[in-house]
Design a protein around this nucleic acid. Structure first.
Lengths: 355, 355
DNA sequence: TTGTAAGCGTTATCAG
DNA sequence: CTGATAACGCTTACAA
């Protein structure tokens, strides 16, 4: 029966003494090393259990050279945090702890020196990088300094870097393809080409490219509006403007659940029902797509699964001597819900009316 | 010009040698201790800057006894993660890094032994506890073992524990008060009394209490439905049931943006417009309330500010020798948006029609 | 299979 | 104001 009041600070030496073995034996057991007699192992484990011993992480870090921490870097300078981003965190945190690492989340933007020091201080064993720009400086820096990392997203040039990303260009193309197949020809698009030009974030650039490609291939006129942010408000305003300029539009595509909601609100205000009078399609997480009314036809973006996979890739990297480059590009998929339909002047529509 | 290829592993001894001082002097400078000549300090800082030196966190932890890590514990066994929860994380992470701590997020449920070991291992200096139950075992355990902590939420009994929480009972009462003032008498309520009874989470219990009190005080008939989860789907189903049983309902109250959306959808399906034919009010974050159509009249729940404050309280605790108990109970506030109005049979309504 | 002992990079105490 | 030097608790050769 241990007495004393508060912090006992049990050390490996205490365990060794209590179990009548040396500290190295205890250490071996702690680290799952093979050369230990089963009887000894049991005895020591029993003592540890009974006393509630835990090794001191700082000491392990110092002597063993690893922290068992994985850091997720999501600088929130150019981003809003929504369900979209949350799911990355949750997915990553879950995988990280499943592999017995600890999860360190950093949302403050960082300079090169800070990023390097994070690794050099031994505070983290590896890093998951988010908000990747086409010309991002971070992967090169980490690579040169031997810090294991995985990107969620990708640069323009990715030789030697591991990443997981979605094929955003194809995603946007698919959205338009779907609308065209329904019979739409006059389609409005809300995006952030300016944001793409200045900040050079991958998704913005690639979604824009997908839009351009779709218009070229399907011979569609360009009807787009640049929004500052992908919010309800900006989506609403941009849609009203676009609609008043081009009353012939029968569909809208945008890249976020929130802005899609703005689109729908604007359409309703102009007396157009979704999807009867106008279709709406977006890139979104499942949860958001279902929250909107009507539930959105959308390109799935499985943030949580991506976060989970990214963490797993990093763990794999950490457990390997060599560093195998893993590059995963996810194929987008489309989920049909209630925000898209044939255009109002379409033969099928007329048939439906009269049939 | 430093050569070499990869990990140099610069230590405090290197800095001392390069700056022609002893390691203790460097250490003093590192820790902002007073007794150092300004000239020396500058010289050493310059060397550190030039070489890109960072102290090893493990060594600091071992020798200094602190980790500079704050852990947020949000066991996700009984919870879904939505924007609501995300904002806690973001707020807390932001405050934590603002005070030069690192932010460790743990979402896996934990046993007593694990929780204790987290602190004993020296991996964290303090803990922010979430998902607090009325009879939660964690605060007592941490308290007894000298681990600094702050709760987001509160138990039934909180002597000696620091917390920040919202007055949920009052929040729900306010919602009903508002509806009653508009003229509503037949109000449906969607909540989780069962969840409250079994899991004993504070908010569920207190929201329920607020509902009971409001009905008693305003002499309202009880019309409630228990939902499993506060999702769109469950809100939708429960509303349909309740509505078919009690067609006279002119308002609904619920406790989450998502379930409010389910309510609205169900009402629409039964041909009732919100807010013309039926009002809806909910407890929600600002963001969610605006995402729903129509934008929700709601009791604000500022998760991010709460997360931020909780982290600040903990930092304050960590920087103090004594442990001052801080207990913050936030007053709820109501934001009027577009989902509430006078009931359809109300004199004001009739006036509006004819006027 | 187990024990001895030398670090790991800091901080802290105590002289100077 | 500055410098030795002893912890801090663990891992890891190397010996036994």
């Amino acid at each position: 029966m241990a007495s004393s009041s508060s912090s006992d600070a049990l050390t490996i030496a205490d365990i060794a003494r209590l179990a009548q073995v040396s500290v190295s034996t205890v250490s071996r057991i702690l680290n799952g090393k093979p050369d230990v007699a089963e009887a000894t192992r049991q005895r020591v484990l029993e003592v540890m259990e009974r006393t509630g011993y835990t090794p001191h992480s700082g000491a392990q870090q110092l002597a063993g050279g690893k922290s068992s921490v994985i850091t997720l870097l999501f600088p929130m300078d150019h981003a809003e945090f929504t369900q979209f981003e949350l799911d990355f965190f949750i997915g990553a945190a879950s995988a990280v702890s499943k592999h017995h690492y600890f999860f360190n989340l950093m949302t403050e933007p960082m300079e090169a020196a800070d990023l390097l020091n994070l690794y050099r201080s031994g505070r983290t064993d590896g890093v998951i990088l988010m908000q990747i720009r086409l010309d991002d400086w971070r992967p090169a820096l980490l690579h040169e300094n031997g810090c294991p990392f995985v990107m969620i997203g990708r640069c323009a040039e990715n030789d030697g870097y591991s990443y997981i990303d979605m094929d955003f260009e194809r995603a946007m193309f698919m959205a338009f393809e779907n609308l065209v197949e329904l019979g739409h020809q006059q389609i409005g698009f809300l995006g952030r080409p300016g944001w793409m030009r200045t900040a050079q974030f991958g998704p913005a650039a690639r979604l824009w490219a997908g839009y351009q490609r779709a218009c070229a291939q399907f011979n569609l006129p360009l009807h787009y509006r640049e929004v500052e942010q992908l919010t309800v408000q900006d989506g609403y305003t941009a849609t009203l403007e676009l609609l008043d300029e081009q009353p012939g539009l029968t569909a809208f595509a945008t890249v976020h659940g929130a802005s899609a909601n703005g689109v729908i609100r604007a359409l309703r205000e102009r007396g157009r029902k979704v999807p009867r009078d106008c279709s709406v399609i977006a890139l979104a997480t499942n949860k958001i797509a279902q929250l909107v009314t009507p539930p959105l036809t959308h390109i799935n973006f499985p943030s949580d699964a991506i976060g989970f996979q990214a963490a797993q890739m990093l763990v794999r990297l950490l457990n390997t001597r060599a560093d195998p480059v893993e590059q995963v590009l996810l194929e987008p998929t489309l989920t049909l819900r209630d925000s898209t339909a044939v255009p109002p002047d379409h033969p099928l529509f007329t048939m439906r009316q009269t049939g």
